[in-house]
């Protein structure tokens, strides 16, 4: 588990510091990143529905944001 977490951190640290071969985009290269499906946001109600279903069937919750409050389902 710890090894897995360390690997994850290594991958993302590399990506986030752009120490890898990838080049951060220039202002005029952001056409693709502006596509709705490329943003981290999504369909609000779909996220709400799915989150509600999964947190009521599984022991885990959270991870991608805060807010929304509790529910008697979990």
């Amino acid at each position: 588990m710890n090894r897995l977490a360390a690997g994850l951190i290594a991958i993302t640290a590399c990506a986030v510091s752009s120490g890898c071969a990838m080049q951060a985009p220039k202002p005029w290269q952001k056409g693709v990143l502006a596509k709705p499906e490329m943003t981290m946001a999504g369909d609000m109600l779909e996220l709400k529905f799915n989150d509600h279903t999964w947190t009521s069937k599984e022991a885990s919750f959270g991870g991608f944001g805060v807010g929304g409050g509790g529910c008697g389902c979990n």
């Binding site: 990506a15 986030v16 951060a24 290269q29 990143l33 981290m40």
Partner: peptide, 9 residues
């Protein structure tokens, strides 16, 4: 972070 023109992490 936008790590490339095609990647958002």
């Amino acid at each position: 972070r936008a790590v490339s023109v095609n990647d958002l992490v």
